[in-house]
């Protein structure tokens, strides 16, 4: 399976090589979508992981043991359904098709699972219905069911 995670680094670990271990020990392929990690600072990384479910879960456990918080990015991206008036402007902006038009109804669908949290839709939405937050204060559970 392929899932996208938000990893939050405590500043103590931000200079350690961590991600390479995912391939070496857990047989998880990864794709770094976005990262802001500086020495001696809290940092975050948006990581796409591809592999067997149990391998990904072991990898997540390993990350947690280092104090790295891992959570599904889907929980960090939100569409305010009351604000969204289904115009479709976002569907031309979203680079991964997480926001797309469903035929033939022409409804604007948001699939958080596909979202990479690039944030283009946030300012691209005419009524600002999309929100992406990397604030660690609102951490959510990350264990794969």
């Amino acid at each position: 399976m392929t899932k996208i995670f938000l990893l939050s680094y405590p500043k103590e670990n931000s200079s350690q090589p961590v991600i390479c271990q995912l391939v070496k020990h857990y047989d998880v392929e990864f794709n770094i979508l976005k990262a802001e990690i500086l020495p001696q600072r809290d940092g975050y990384l948006i990581l796409e992981m591809k592999g067997l479910k149990e391998n990904i879960n072991s990898a997540l456990e390993y990350l947690r043991s280092l104090g790295v918080k891992a959570e599904r990015i889907a929980g960090r991206v939100h569409r305010d359904e009351k604000k969204c008036f289904q115009c479709g402007a976002c569907t031309g902006i979203c680079p991964v098709g997480a926001l797309h038009i469903q035929q033939p109804e022409m409804t604007v669908v948001f699939e958080p699972e596909k979202c990479t949290a690039c944030g283009l839709c946030v300012t691209g939405c005419p009524v600002r219905a999309m929100a992406v937050s990397f604030d660690p204060a609102t951490e959510e559970s990350c264990v794969m069911a």
């Binding site: 479709g88 402007a89 031309g92 604007v108």
Partner: peptide
């Protein structure tokens, strides 16, 4: 690829 700006559901 095309995208609408006018809400068809609306």
């Amino acid at each position: 690829p095309t995208a609408p700006l006018s809400s068809l559901t609306g």
